[in-house]
Amino acid sequence: MTLPRAMATSLKTLALAAGALVLAALAPAAASAQSITVTINSIDGEAVNTLGEYRLGLQDCLDDVELEFELMGVPSDKSTIDVYEGNNCNDPSRDSDDTDTCDYLTSFETQESTELIVTLNASVLGCMEGTSQQPTLWFLAVDSSESGEEVGQRYGTFEIEVDASAPNAPTDVEGGTGENQIPVEWETSDSDLDSFIIYIDSSPTDGDAGIGCGSSVLVEGQPPPSGGVTTKTINEANATSANLRPSDLDGTRAAVAVVAVDDAGNESPLSNISCVEIVPTTSFWEDYQSDPNAVDGGCPCAAVGPVHVENGWPILLALCALGLRRRRARAATEDVR
């Protein structure tokens, strides 16, 4: 079977066109080959875990913490690494004045090495309070032979996780009473929490334990005070309660509020204010000891003495006898076999 000549020619043309399209699609990808590997080493001197898990919080930006990156595969024939933040910063046709999509941050000298440690300050990321962002950092190798122009083919990227959004304040905070252990309970609705901070004002203004309690320094919904209170940190992400010790209070009553801290270090506003109080208590054991019918006013059975154990010997001996008899019977059966 043969195709008409015209149809064969058309098919050949179509095949050529398809091939050309595939090549055209592949060409830009080859031109923008990424060759510099970027990893984050530490945040403000603290090593990032081996999984590279981290999130920057608002306070990191405000405190201008240092971010240390390691660049691998830096071309030795390039002299500078330009750092941008934005989108498609490796595009050679990008307008250098196009600051809407690509912001120049800084530059580093490569020092004739394929590895480079660079340090950025978090403030350059322009964290915005109340937002979560994932800005991409672009590390572009600059060809020294072309008067500092970026080549665009040798670059690395790194996506920064910035969470500048504060978690919700804990709700239904309720302080309790006790002598050695004074509980504080709360509820939370966020899932990305890392810890909680209990703020303790040992000079409450009014209120009874467990009900409303006033404080001149703790205000619900406001940021925690910077002084005039003591704090207790609960390093448990899913905590809904904690126990204060008498030493945590300066006195017998205190107003407490709880702040949630998310895994980016953002702190929630203060929760509602509640009261805790140290009161004399009687425990189960103290109550038993005060009972006139208590055994010798306490419990002399705290240690196992021979007087007590010997009551059980007959049973132990009987069990041993049973075991021996069974063993002999089994041995006799095996002999018969």
Binding site: G178, P183, F284
Partner: peptide, 26 residues
């Protein structure tokens, strides 16, 4: 359970009793 205060009311403080019975039996 909870400890009790001077008025006999339960406080928020916990008190506990734990038992571990061990026995030999026929």
């Amino acid at each position: 359970g909870n400890t009790i205060d001077d008025a006999g009311e339960a406080t928020s403080e916990e008190t506990e009793l734990e038992i571990v019975p061990l026995n030999v039996i026929g």
